[in-house]
């Protein structure tokens, strides 16, 4: 980013190559709309490039970039739905292309083979869309960007404690919304606490 600040176009291309898919994924989940996500991904990089002089090395670049993306997403949601506080419409269920740009553990297979994977994806997406925009952003940043509560707080302009509450509420809400499909997932040992898993 230091090189980008100095006007190095090749360095900028490297940043786009590294972050394009991640920003696009974030916006895709925030907006629930592929076309809007593509538009805003480009807009995010345009704004980042125009504000490059203002970037400070002490600020984590990812947090800065996702702050821009999140703000653009909130504006778009307000333009389209009047209020970004509202959940997204759950009618859209078009599946995302199943191409992973970054290595990630394979999603677990549903226990109930009778339910198609596409159905599970649609159900989970509908549940995610039912969250308000802050909850949705926190979950997506935590899950897909593996950001810490502190980093998420920087993006959303919240304290780590507020992020803690936000993510907790979001997960409780998702638990309720996904109650019908929770049993499809095989229980696994509790992370960091394997010795106590006995149910």
């Amino acid at each position: 980013m230091i090189r980008v600040r100095q006007g190095d176009d090749d360095a900028f291309r490297e940043i786009v190559a590294k972050y394009h898919a991640r920003v696009h994924t974030f916006l895709r989940h925030m907006l629930g709309n592929e076309q809007s996500a593509e538009d805003l991904t480009q807009e995010t990089f345009l704004r980042m490039h125009r504000s490059r002089v203002r970037y400070r090395a002490r600020c984590r670049f990812g947090s800065w970039l996702f702050t821009i993306a999140n703000n653009l997403a909130l504006n778009r949601l307000r333009d389209e739905f009047g209020s970004a506080r509202m959940p997204l419409p759950t009618t859209e269920s078009g599946s995302l292309p199943m191409t992973h740009s970054t290595p990630r553990a394979s999603p677990p297979e549903p226990v109930d083979r009778g339910m198609e994977r596409a159905e599970v994806v649609a159900t989970v997406r509908a549940a995610l869309n039912a969250l308000n925009e802050n909850q949705r952003a926190a979950i997506v940043l935590s899950k897909f960007e593996e950001m810490s509560y502190e980093e998420i707080g920087k993006v959303l302009d919240l304290s780590p404690q507020a992020v803690k509450s936000l993510i907790n509420r979001a997960k409780v809400r998702l638990k309720t919304l996904l109650a019908g499909v929770l049993d499809m997932i095989q229980p696994r040992p509790i992370e960091g606490n394997e010795e106590y898993f006995d149910d």
Partner: peptide, 25 residues
């Protein structure tokens, strides 16, 4: 809660073709 986390893993990440990246840049 862990099952919720696992269900979120069903949401796919999006890939970005090299051409798309070049076009955006």
């Amino acid at each position: 809660i862990q099952r919720v986390e696992d269900l979120l893993d069903f949401l796919p990440l999006t890939g970005s073709p090299r051409a798309k990246i070049g076009e955006t840049a």
